[in-house]
Amino acid sequence: MENLVEKLKSEIIEALNLAEMKPEQIDENAPLFVDGLGLDSIDALELIVLLEKKYGLKVANAEEGKKVLYSVNSMAEFITRNKKG
């Protein structure tokens, strides 16, 4: 799980072109979309693409999307849960 969190941070930086950001600057517990990284609606859609592309996981709907994309930790949990299942 810890490895996955670190890996996700790097992948998020790459996918969202957060060039001036380092993985250690992202708090895995903090909300991704309120202030924090200054992400917007396109970034949210891009993170959904990331989950599909790198982990083969589809987010069912906007409702689930909100929960999954809440923080790096919630993304990691979603990945772990669905891989085991």
Binding site: L16, N17, I42, D43, L45, E46, V49, E52, K53
Partner: peptide
């Protein structure tokens, strides 16, 4: 994998 941030 079409990307919204490219398409826009």
């Amino acid at each position: 994998f079409p990307s919204p941030s490219v398409f826009v």
